[in-house]
Every structure is written in C-alpha cells, then in structure tokens.
C-alpha cells in the first residue's frame, strides 16, 4: 500500500503535541519573566539562556534516542551493571561537561568581542559548567525514566521521549541556570 502525505492529517497529529510543547516553553518563559530584573542586571546571563536550553535539549534527545534504539535491539537493561547503559550515561555526562565548559569559554569570548558585559571568564565557565552538569544529570534521569516507562507500557519510546525530554529540559534548564548564577555571582 502506498502511503500518502496529507496536510490535514499531519496537522492533526502534530498540533496537540506542539501545543503541549509550547505550554512547557511558556512555563520556562514565565520563569525568565519572573527573574527579569536579575536577567537584565547580571551581565552575560542572557547570552547563556538559548544555548543552555538548546544544548540541554539536544544532549537529552541524543541520549533518549540511543536508549530507545538499545531497548529495541535488546542490548540494554536498566541496571547499573548493564554495560551499554553505564557507558551511555558516562559518555553523555562527559559530552555534557565538555560542551557546557566550551559554552562558558566562548560565551565570555563573544561577550568581550562584541562589547557585551561579562561576569568574567572564570565566573562564566563556572556558571556554565556547573549548571551544565546539573542539567545533564537531571535530564539523564528524566530520559531514562520516560524511555523505560514507555517501553514497558508497549509504547515506542522513539515517539515519546524526545518531545518529553526537550520540553522538560526548558523548565529545568532555566531554573538550574538561574539558581547557579545567583549562587556564583
């Protein structure tokens, strides 16, 4: 049977999920709005907002896609002794740490180059790396739980985990970034 794309069918499936995603996005936006004064007062924080949300979402999307494939292939078990699970967790933690460290370094560099205020190289790297590690750890838990929960309930984790983790990452990402920034600066 030849499948055909239909604009209304695509929209009918996509709209509910997209609306749900925007609700999470708006929740993250409300947090930004609440701490607007801090955001405007603390230099260098603004530049970190989109990259923190984006990177956090990408890291958790990659992790959940890998876990989903491994579940389908049957190469993974939800146990700390499972090699595939352990290596994926460790690799993603390292990848998260490295990329958020680079965010701090280049974030400061770009601020200096463009003439935006920066809290300083050391502070920027510290804020970015600490919040990056925390976000990656939280998102590893969220991604693992949603992948295994979907799989155990007969739902294909490929369909569910990525929208779930990227949406949740918006809210946690912004909260953690603010928390860490307020502690350090």
């Amino acid at each position: 049977m030849q499948k055909e794309y239909n604009v209304f069918k695509i929209m009918k499936t996509a709209l509910p999920l997209l609306t749900l995603c925007s609700l999470f996005g708006i929740a993250a936006g409300l947090i930004l709005d609440t701490y607007e004064n801090i955001l405007f007062a603390l230099p260098g924080l603004f530049i970190l907002v989109p990259v923190t949300i984006g990177l956090g979402g990408n890291i958790s999307a990659i992790f959940s896609a890998r876990i989903s494939s491994a579940l389908h292939l049957g190469t993974i078990e939800f146990r700390h002794t499972s090699l595939v699970f352990k290596n994926n967790v460790l690799a993603i933690l390292i990848a998260g740490m490295v990329s958020f460290f680079l965010v701090g370094v280049f974030g400061h560099l770009f601020c200096v180059l463009i003439g935006f205020e920066s809290p300083g190289l050391f502070e920027m790297v510290l804020i970015s790396t600490i919040s990056g590690i925390l976000i990656t750890m939280v998102m590893l838990i969220v991604a693992t739980l949603s992948a295994f929960y979907s799989y155990n309930n007969g739902i294909d984790p490929d369909d569910t985990t990525i929208p779930i983790v990227t949406s949740i990452c918006d809210v946690f990402g912004v909260l953690i970034l603010f928390g860490v920034t307020m502690m350090i600066v």
């Binding site: 530049i47 990659i62 690799a91 390292i94 490295v98 280049f106 974030g107 463009i114």
Partner: peptide, 22 residues
C-alpha cells in the same frame, strides 16, 4: 565511540546557541 559520534554535533549546537544568545 559514543563521544566521537556525539561531540561534533554538540559543538555545532554550542555555537548556534551562543549566536542565538548574542
């Protein structure tokens, strides 16, 4: 091997995200 597959992509994401931040 996981890092080799994942890191290049995340690097691109770092720069596009920072650009959005600017």
């Amino acid at each position: 091997s996981i890092l080799k597959q994942v890191l290049p992509l995340l690097l691109i994401c770092v720069f596009s995200g920072l650009f959005a931040g600017i």
